[in-house]
Every structure is written in C-alpha cells, then in structure tokens.
Design a binder for these strands. Structure first.
Lengths: 124, 124
DNA sequence: AGACATCTACGAAGGTCTTCGTATATTGAT
DNA sequence: ATCAATATACGAAGACCTTCGTAGATGTCT
C-alpha cells in the first residue's frame, strides 16, 4: 500500500508511462518542490518494496509500476470504503459525486455501468 | 485530516454516537487489540487537534466528533480523487462499484442522484 | 586529458504516529 | 478506612516517512 508521497510518483507513472527519475521529478516539480535526490530515494525505496520495477540497461534507469493502476486504485478504494463508509461502495460513490463535478459523459458512463450491475444481480 | 488510527475512532463515533473512551475501545477491540491507554491517548491527541470535543462533566468523559461525518468523508474522498484518479469523481465511483457489490436499492439511489446531477448541469 | 554535468547509492536527521507503562485521582464495595 | 477497579494525564520508546547532503561512478564537451 503506497504512502502519499509514493502515490504521487505512481500517479505520474500511470499518466506518463515508464519514466526516469528525472522525468518523474520534473513532473512533480509543478506541484511540489523537493530536491532531486528526494525523488530518487523514494523511487529506490519503492523499488525495494516491490512497488516499482526498473530497467537498468540504460545509464538513467527506467521505472514502471509493478502492479497495474486499476489494482492499486482498487485497494485504495476498498480501504477507504471500509474505513469511512461502513463498507458501502455506493455511499462512497455518492459522496464523491457530490464533492466534485463530473461531466455529462462520465455520468452517463457511470449510469451504463450501474444498469449492467443491476442486470447481473437482478436474476431472481 | 485524520490518520488511519484516528479514522477508526471517528468511524465508531459516527456509528454509535457520543461515547466514552471505554466504549470506543471496546468497539475497536473486535478488530484491533491494543491497550486501553492507546485508545485513550489517541483520543486525547484528537481532542487537542480539534477533531473531537469532550464533555467532562461526568467522571468518564463523553467524546463526539467536532465535524459532521459528511465533511470528513468529503475531504477524504477529494484527497483520493486528486491523488489517484486525476481528479475524476466518476472514475473513482466506477472503481468503487466494481470493487464492492452494492445492493439494488443503493444502486437505484445512486441512479436517482445521477439523474439529478444531469438535470442540474443540462441547462445549456 | 581535464572540467563539468548528471547519474545512482546511501546514511542520517527530523517529523509524525502509534503504542504502552507508570503515576495520580476518583469511585464503590466490604 | 482500606482495597480494588477504573478514570485521566503524560512521558518516552519504537516504527515509519520524508528530506537532503555527500560520495562515487559515468558520460560529455572542449
């Protein structure tokens, strides 16, 4: 389970694909301002923890997440649902939608998914 | 922003209402097994941080959350949406629904909410 | 070759969180 | 009044995270 700082790095890698420390650091620089070696150290620790893998065939190593984004997101969501929403995913979903505006397209995509879920369980 | 251990305590208070340290500790005991003084200390720290308020008129103080659950949940959700879902609440919602099963009633409640959101924004 | 930039490795400081033991006060029962 | 149970207060240890400086290796440019 990644920490906050680790998640910020994962988010960059999810968005930009496999990257060097320099690339990740520059991407983070927009928001954070930390020393380059801080990002490096974090990514070294993450590699040791098994969160990242790296290709060392180049002088600047290229890092990628070990697990797919969906899997990590799933774990994070499950943790939050259990910790703060009594295990109810729907309650979390409603709180999320009331917190941040979603576009019409996203809302419709979500509706489609709900219909599908209803159809799956509705066989009784 | 509560830590994990703090959130576990808040969850008990949300569920059970204002409680003593003993009551919170016993409720947590089902899952965790820590010393009573650990729960006490956490709740003292939370009071100092402003997360809890306490009524000291009884020998056993009675604690309650300072902020409504909805507000804390909102902050937690926003943080996760920004950190792991590129700011998209709908994406988080979909991930949540695919992670944990929701009942038909909850799904329909969610749909109703989505319809309302669509109606609100559809005035263009 | 020599100067300079850039990379990785790593140790250690400083902060925050969690945990628990101990001290002290209060209540209740015998 | 004494003993046992239970309450709060608090200090400090231990774990984990984040941060950065320094060192050494590798590449680049003139």
């Amino acid at each position: 389970m990644p920490t906050d700082a680790e998640l910020a790095i994962l988010a960059v890698l999810w968005r930009e694909g496999p990257s060097t420390v320099r690339q990740v650091h520059d991407a983070l620089a927009a928001e954070q301002s930390t020393a380059y070696t801080t990002t490096l150290k974090l990514m070294q620790v993450m590699t040791q923890k098994g969160l990242l893998r790296r290709d060392t065939s180049q002088r600047s190593y290229i890092f990628r997440p070990t697990r797919p984004a969906a899997r990590t997101q799933k774990n994070l969501v499950k943790k939050l649902v259990d910790a703060a929403f009594e295990g109810s995913a729907a309650q979390l979903a409603m709180r999320a939608l009331s917190t941040k505006r979603a576009s019409r397209e996203e809302l419709e995509e979500l509706e489609t998914m709900i219909e599908k879920l209803k159809a799956e369980q509705g066989d009784d």
